[in-house]
Nucleic acid binder design. Structure first.
Lengths: 171, 171
DNA sequence: TTCTTGACTTGGACTTCGTCCATTGTAGGA
DNA sequence: TCCTACAATGGACGAAGTCCAAGTCAAGAA
């Protein structure tokens, strides 16, 4: 019983200063798009709020980089040591199907998860080091495809990935 | 010794009518872009021509669909039963680095190989059944990205994937 | 507050896709 | 015909991801 309680409050337990709730901003959290928004949206959709899901959502929100599932798991483990890999995969899958997170497979290796799903954007990838940046080109990329080239498809989305060398790697 | 000879000529051996060399057009070969072109180009680049490499190249040329490495292997095995999976992977990797074949990872699962590498094009993917079609939109997709959105990257290529439902799946 | 219950989590086995490497085979030049 | 450097083999290995039975627990009801 004791162990269970510790399990669900690990983050609070291990924090210096004691008792800071998981949602309080910490020095290395971004100021924009507070996690409470996402948590609220999820709760409103009937998502059962568990400590595991909260931690995964926080990890994604905390860093606006494009983490792999394993990286998400590694960061989640820092806050909730027992969290299982399968849980991270499940949760990411749900966030994707809810449209809160976008799944990228830019390199054919591990998928990456982009928490910036609420604003349409595209990606700029360094072929050398794998760095990914969000970019916002002009115009609607869907409009470029003429009807004659749609072959009866109902096209609903375009993934555009620009590839090249980042400033570091081209130096 | 006998076995070795059979091994390097399996396709000829099993052909009805006997002795038709592997490169002769057969009823189910496409007429366009004859394989001999590709084989010639590869030979001109100093590629050592082995039966395995020939079979892999023929499989890619024979069907202008986008096969996975395993599908290429399965089709290659029909012609050359002993061909190893590793050999198919090696050969595909070489064709890609020679620029003769394009590697696609449209779904984060197995990579697919597109033999139509000599003409710039983009892809239309059915999110339901995975069908892939080549498409040729207007304009240069690279031109859409303004300098202000390049963050110092040297952008050399764009991958554009349109996603939606094919006529079958939307019915 | 204490049930209750169905949704969630766990962890380990399993699958799929791909790579590595020591050994064996062979294409193509001398 | 012989050599040798390059290519193929096949089995082990590894990374990424899925599956599932058993255990746990969030949140609504009493």
């Amino acid at each position: 019983m004791d162990e269970v309680q510790v399990k669900n409050n690990v983050k609070v337990e291990v924090r210096a200063g004691g008792g800071a709730p998981a949602l309080l901003p910490s020095p290395n959290r971004k100021q924009v798009a507070p996690m409470s928004d996402l948590l609220e949206r999820l709760r409103a959709r009937g998502w059962r709020m568990t400590s595991q899901r909260r931690v995964v959502a926080e990890v994604l929100d905390g860093e606006h980089v494009h983490l792999t599932a394993d990286e998400v798991h590694a960061r989640a483990v820092e806050r909730l040591p027992e969290i299982a890999r399968a849980t991270v995969y499940n949760t990411l899958g749900e966030l994707v199907s809810l449209g809160e997170v976008v799944e990228l497979s830019t390199d054919g290796r591990a998928k990456r998860y982009d928490p910036n799903a609420r604003h349409a954007h595209q990606h700029l990838v360094c072929v050398e080091c794998g760095t990914i940046r969000d970019v916002h080109p002009d115009g609607d990329p869907l409009a470029v495809l003429p009807d004659s080239e749609r072959y009866g498809f109902t096209v609903s989305k375009v993934d555009v990935t620009y590839r090249g060398l980042c400033p570091n790697c081209s130096a």
